[in-house]
Nucleic acid binder design. Structure first.
Lengths: 179, 179
DNA sequence: CACCGCATGTAACGTGTTACATGATTCA
DNA sequence: TGAATCATGTAACACGTTACATGCGGTG
């Protein structure tokens, strides 16, 4: 619900039209959103009673305003801690690579390290005049660096342990046994 | 596509039925999947020519087998580095909290720290006999710790900078100006 | 018997993605 | 004139979530 909530939050600062919301979102977070999604999201916000659509003004801009319910939800969203993603794709992938005979875990680690290293370099090279955007970039850099450290850890664990401890039996036919 | 790809990968090791795939997924990754999703995912995999549904055996189990195309895709998935999530919800949230007048950025940081700290403690307390699952848990711990460090960093930046540098003008009516 | 785990599914819905259609305005 | 940007939308679809329906088999 990130896009939806973010749009609602921006709307909490004052009425905006769709295209403008997209620009504001990108200006504030440094991210990007598909324009089409902004419009469908605005429809849904209105459907849910969190925003209301105004008449087109002289310039043809269709302004949306936040409702009382919407404002409450937006402020609630801001202070609520984020739900953890139930699945970390990289971790799941590596777990499977390790328990699947013939899967190339080392190859995954190498490829992932290459990509993440490049990404860190790219982010480090960016200039940020804006504090908020600098913090967003910093969050990414830190998480990528943690990932790189984890990848190294994985390599060393695999090196010491691989031959015997990772054998995953083929799922058996018949009754499965609980872990 | 994590669940879909993971199921396909497990299928690469040998035919499985739905319920069994769920158990295997949980055994190998320590995560959980809704059973219903396994069945709908199997339908989609068959629709896409990556798996094929067999007849129910004597025990009534409906086995799915991977196809050649499916095996290729599974192995490709394993070694491909993960795409980075385009939006880090916490970072987006904080960026908005900082650029939105009246939003409680400090409250967000406090709430998030509390939750993440608790989560780290919980994960540290877990016992792992299985190497792959231990690595998955370790990935989480490391990313959470990076998050906590980032939150501290945010606090210090905000403390030194807040009064003047974060002022975000209200989106203006009329032509918006590019960032 | 009642409950739980096994096992297979379906229905309804949510956010988010991509691609497309359309038109006005700006500017080289 | 032609391209880019501004601006609003629609259509089709993807994965994922929750909740529900149904039935079998073992066990306290």
């Amino acid at each position: 619900m990130t896009v939806r909530s973010a749009i609602l939050a921006i709307l909490a600062q004052g009425p905006c039209y769709g295209y403008q919301l997209r620009l504001e979102y990108e200006r504030r977070t440094g991210g990007s959103v598909n324009v089409g999604q902004v419009y469908t999201t605005l429809d849904r916000l209105e459907r849910d009673g969190l925003a209301s659509k105004g008449q087109a003004d002289a310039a043809g801009h269709v302004y949306y305003s936040i409702t009382a319910a919407g404002a409450a939800e937006a402020m609630g969203w801001i202070v609520a801690p984020v739900e953890r993603a139930p699945r970390d794709e990289l971790a799941v992938k590596l777990a499977l690579a390790l328990t699947l005979p013939g899967a190339d875990a080392a190859g995954l680690i190498a490829a992932q390290r290459e990509r993440t290293t490049a990404e860190v370099a790219r982010l480090r090279a960016e200039q940020h005049d804006d504090v908020a955007r600098a913090l967003v970039a910093d969050a990414l850099v830190r998480s990528y660096e943690a990932e790189l450290a984890w990848l190294e850890h994985c390599e060393s664990v695999i090196a010491t342990v691989e031959p015997y401890a990772l054998a995953a039996e083929t799922p058996k036919r018949g009754r499965p046994s609980r872990a």
